[in-house]
Amino acid sequence: MNGWTLFGPVTLLSVVLLFVTYAILFERKVMGWMQGRHGPNRLGPWGLLQTVADILKLLIKEDTIPRNADRAMFKAAPVIAFVPSFVVLAAIPYTKGLLFSDLAVGLLYYIAISSITTIGILSGGWASNNKYALLGSMRSVAQMISYEIPLVMSVIGVVMAAGTLNLTGIVESQKEVWFILPQIIGFVVFFIASLAELNRTPFDLPEAESELVAGYHVEYSGFRFAFFMLAEYVYVYAMAALTTILFLGGWNPLFGIDFIPPIFWFALKFLLMVFLLIWIRATLPRIRMDQLMQLGWKVLLPLSLINIFLSAVLKEVFSGWY
């Protein structure tokens, strides 16, 4: 056990917390500009300290637990929801040398661990003993389960093209051409399904304010609420990084511009993905529950199956070129 074993995760946690703090500010700013507003601009220069103040407010708020709640589960749920979101980051490679664990089944590890968060959301909604919370968590889980299937299916095309489940190997096999070009159907399905997995607009039905108050975390306040929010934004980080690795070629440079270091290429693509998520949130309205299920099962799932079939045909027919 060397110093890196202890120091690395702590560094990663601070990087992720910094990312979450400024991603929230960035999101509010970008959404403000898109809607003709300024966004937060009072606290600190250019509103830079707004999120810091918001977090401070959350930390010193009274921690309320409803009288009829299931106390133990109410306390455990934010932990169950947050821990997997941080654990999945262990498998993500940033550059060839900068990674925590080079798992042979890295992609599968990500998908498996991230499914545990669903239990946290479900038990949080149930333990609150509130009908809105229960409805919100039920919706959330139904949505996450339905969209996990097209998410995994769309990735199979990438796995077939790369011939490995190892995330470093997948990036290495995109040296010539990024998978977004040959796997364009896979990318579209993956991106839509990842929006739904992240519970973001247009798939933010679990916390639809106008019908469910706030969904599964309606009874949560203070630090426990912060943990649910944190888990959500850490998943934004993880999903943007995963999309970059799977479809945008990870740290591989575009047009052979390799005087920019690989880590900057990764950061650039990663930030592009984060911006795309925010852009969509500011632009699209929320879709209805039945439309959500139809889109998942009747459109995305068949599309991802077709994608698998096409990838197999392409791999066999154009085995030299592809």
């Binding site: 599968l108 590890y109 998908i111 498996a112 499914s115 239990i119 479900l122 889980v141 389960i145």
Partner: peptide, 18 residues
């Protein structure tokens, strides 16, 4: 058996419990 472990988490811890 990393593959089996990932599948165990995906199927049993995730899907079956939910």
């Amino acid at each position: 058996a990393e593959f089996l472990a990932a599948i165990q988490v995906l199927i049993y811890t995730g899907a079956v419990s939910i």
